[in-house]
């Protein structure tokens, strides 16, 4: 918006060939106002998606939070213990995913850490991510341009069917794995967390690095998932998108039930 306004005013000034002495100052002021306002707005609605360079304050705060909340299992120096894996080189993306979706800190041991309400504020999550990233380099937070859902949904859906659908279900409804593990449903998961999961491969999910799926590919996949989420299924009620099992069960119970009821009524004598 700001750049459009700038362009417009610049075009007018070049056409007349004359410029007010304060035009530049006014332009800069307007530009700053717009960018600042947009930034504030952006920050308040979806804080955390911006890849802000970590300040030393943040790292220090993250260090304290880590020692208090994570070090029991992951070790004071991120080296890992028998209770938890090493966090060296997992990067800010992994921390933001695990803590931001509430998977960490782990509530109790089980086949898999389940998603639950986030235990840390977004600032604390960012501080933890900054601290872990400061110790050893790893995948960083995704750029906002890949999270806007403005990619090619058709291409994304093809990539999703090849790389993701076998575990997460073709409509992203999730599915069972071995020994109590499962691929979670992707409905309602934020674009940032989907991106981070692909980059870092949390828990038993394989890693899809940028050589396998480029950032644009990941953007397309996110776009196709958002498309599925935002558009109703043309085929009618989704029944959880679980496919033939749910649909078959529905038909067996309600379809056959109706037929049986009609047959009973047909053959019963009128009173």
């Amino acid at each position: 918006m700001s750049s459009a306004a700038q362009k417009k005013s610049r075009r007018r000034s070049t056409r007349t060939g004359r410029r007010h002495p304060l035009a530049t100052v006014a332009l800069i002021a307007i530009g700053l106002l717009f960018t600042g306002g947009a930034y504030a707005l952006f920050n308040s609605t979806s804080s955390g998606t911006e890849a802000v360079a970590a300040s030393q304050d943040q790292v220090d705060r993250g260090s304290k939070l880590f020692s208090a909340n994570c070090a029991t299992c992951h070790g004071m120096n991120l080296q890992g213990t028998s209770a938890g894996p090493s966090l060296l080189g997992v990067g800010a993306a992994a921390v933001d995913f695990q803590v931001g979706t509430g998977r960490m800190p782990l509530q109790n041991t089980g086949p898999q850490a389940p998603e639950k309400p986030a235990q840390f504020t977004t600032e604390d999550t960012a501080a933890l991510a900054a601290y872990v990233a400061s110790i050893a380099p790893g995948p960083g937070l995704p750029e906002a341009e890949y999270l806007d859902g403005g990619g090619d949904a058709t291409h994304g859906a093809e990539l999703f069917r090849i790389n993701c659908a076998m575990c997460h279900n073709v409509a992203g409804a999730g599915g069972a794995l071995t020994e109590g593990k499962y691929a979670p449903s992707l409905t309602g998961v934020s674009a940032k967390h989907i991106y981070e999961a692909m980059v870092t491969g949390p828990q038993n999910m394989p890693v899809f690095n940028d050589a396998n799926l480029t950032p644009e590919d990941k953007r397309d996949i996110i776009t196709s998932l958002k498309y599925l989420e935002d558009n109703p299924s043309p085929g009618g009620i989704e029944l959880g998108n679980l496919g033939p099992v749910a649909e078959g069960l529905f038909l067996w119970i309600f379809g056959l039930g109706t037929i049986v009821a009609l047959t009973v009524w047909l053959t019963a004598r009128s009173n």
């Binding site: 790389n163 491969g201 394989p206 890693v207 899809f208 690095n209 050589a211 396998n212």
Partner: peptide, 8 residues
């Protein structure tokens, strides 16, 4: 070199 550990 594209295939990092844990990749599929």
């Amino acid at each position: 070199s594209d295939v990092t550990i844990g990749s599929v």
